[in-house]
Design a binder for these strands. Sequence first.
DNA 1: TACATTTTCTAGCAACGCTATATTATCTTG
DNA 2: CAAGATAATATAGCGTTGCTAGAAAATGTA
Lengths: 190, 190
Amino acid sequence: MGIAERKDRQRADRERRIVAVARVIAESEGWNAVTIRRLADEIEHSQPVLYSHFDNRDAIVAAVALEGFRDINVALREAARGSTGRNAIKNVATAYLGFALRNPALYEAMFILPTELRFAEAGTRPELRAGFEALAAVVTPFCVDVEVATETFWAALHGLVELERSGRIRPGARSERIALIVRTIVVSGK
Amino acid sequence: MGIAERKDRQRADRERRIVAVARVIAESEGWNAVTIRRLADEIEHSQPVLYSHFDNRDAIVAAVALEGFRDINVALREAARGSTGRNAIKNVATAYLGFALRNPALYEAMFILPTELRFAEAGTRPELRAGFEALAAVVTPFCVDVEVATETFWAALHGLVELERSGRIRPGARSERIALIVRTIVVSGK
DNA sequence: TACATTTTCTAGCAACGCTATATTATCTTG
DNA sequence: CAAGATAATATAGCGTTGCTAGAAAATGTA
């Protein structure tokens, strides 16, 4: 009897729709527009249905964030492919900023909004590690302490994103700043 | 007739109290606990009084943020004093992280929460430039393009703060990461 | 003392996240 | 196939939020 399977599939479909709709609304109108009522309207169900999928609103944000971590991982590995050494670092850095600034709401869910997604802890989702390791991969050839170098690289990129996104540094000089960051890594270790 | 002056003074006092209370609550219970009703209770007035001082809740957050920019400016200049060159950079970087992590809610108001405080624009408040220039001061001896170097330095520090604050990089290796950032600046230009 | 003006408060709106409870649909069983 | 049990969904509402219109009180002026 595939009846239970069909039900499971329909539930999973609905859950995906919720996350997809949340992402679209967030990207087009900001996260404040992503309300439970609005989501319920969009998927044509009542509000309590959402709570049968997610514990609360934050959990929905976290689900979108998780998609973001999957996507950025792909984008970074794409950027690294075909180049090596110093060039690979530059390409990955550029891709990181590009991804973040092209998907501001998504990036917000990943790094700004409060979610239960934790990194340093034991039960860290693999999606969260993957992006970190994409950074680590291009950094590795240049340094002894990969962990420290990757964390610093990541932090620098994240900082550039946030300050640019909030209009606190000039959008124009982006590539010069990236060049500086790249040099940090290249010169540093080895 | 000093009667109008007294009134002005009392109003200014009350406004300062609002900001101070908001800061205290935010730091001890988080920004979600800073509601208009709560603030009104604390200053022993009704809610509409708050709106005679500030346009909306965000404006109160912005006022706290402005205090933060004044404070961090002092902290950074304090840290720079007495040391020169590479040491000055390290001290300032350490002070920056220390300040941010000791005053998480304040830092949140300055950089995370949505406010109307803009940097790049014409009417930028001097408080917002001051901190940037404190960073620029220690960076200047080492680079040709001060603006780019300072922006990058700042971004790196901000990124370290945010990733550490959200538990995404190890708190332990902080000084190693700072050392890496310092090397970026020192090696880069000149 | 009576009036005018400014300041403050009371009371309430609309929207929010979330949930207890009623209702409907679905499956199981006599 | 109808009746009862079970699971899924909807209705309606609670408490809280930011914010505001209009009543009330305090203050200054004559």
